[in-house]
Simulated scan of single mutants.
Amino acid sequence: MKNIIRLLLLAVALTAFSGTVSAQSNKQRLTREQLAEVQAKHIAKEMAMDKATSQRFIKTFCQFQRDIWALGPRPKQSHSQMTDEETGQALKARFAHSRKILDLRQKYYAIYSEFLTQKQIQRVYELERQMMEHLSKRNRRANR
């Protein structure tokens, strides 16, 4: 009888433990839209923006991110076995993509200038870069 109770308790404990483990491994990842909004809210909070400025910033920041995503990923650089002509085309494609990103950054700089000071815009860029570095480091650790 004691062995049956021990076996039953062991089965219950294992079942409870496996439920906890599976719940942790099934964490839902944020969509990139959600992540952009979280980033924008963090920046607004970090900079202590008032409610109206914060709402406008979040909306503008999220639209900027959507515009960047619409450009598609950066063209890949495959160094292996490319001719000089192919390498030149790949470089020109990267330049064109970089130019599009720069054009968007200038467009949104003008929009930010309508409701943020120049120092605030600089701080937004700093915070955004810090977050991207943090996410990049986290992603590298997760892929090891």
Rank of each mutant, 00 (worst) to 15 (best):
S80V: 14
K2R: 13
A96N: 12
R138S: 15
C62Y: 01
K27V: 13
A40V: 07
I121T: 04
A70S: 07
F61G: 00
V38A: 14
S136L: 07
Q118G: 09
A70K: 12
Q34W: 02
I111L: 06
R6P: 04
M49H: 03
K119W: 09
I43H: 00
R129F: 00
Q118V: 12
L104P: 04
R129T: 14
E114S: 10
R140D: 13
Q24G: 11
L8I: 15
V12R: 01
V12C: 02
R32C: 06
H42F: 09
T117Y: 02
M49P: 06
E128S: 14
F115Q: 01
T15P: 07
R94N: 09
E85H: 09
N143D: 12
S78N: 15
L102R: 15
K119E: 15
G88C: 02
K27W: 03
R140P: 03
K27Q: 13
L135Q: 13
K137F: 09
S98M: 14
Y108N: 05
N3V: 05
E46C: 05
Q89N: 09
Q39A: 05
L102Q: 15
L7A: 08
A23C: 05
Q28F: 06
S80A: 13
Q55G: 12
Q120S: 08
K45A: 11
V12W: 01
I121K: 01
Y108E: 00
I68A: 07
Q81T: 11
A36P: 01
S22T: 06
A142D: 11
R66I: 07
R123M: 11
M132D: 11
Y108I: 03
E46W: 00
A110S: 07
H97L: 03
M131E: 13
T87E: 08
A90E: 10
T83R: 00
P73L: 13
A96G: 10
Y112M: 00
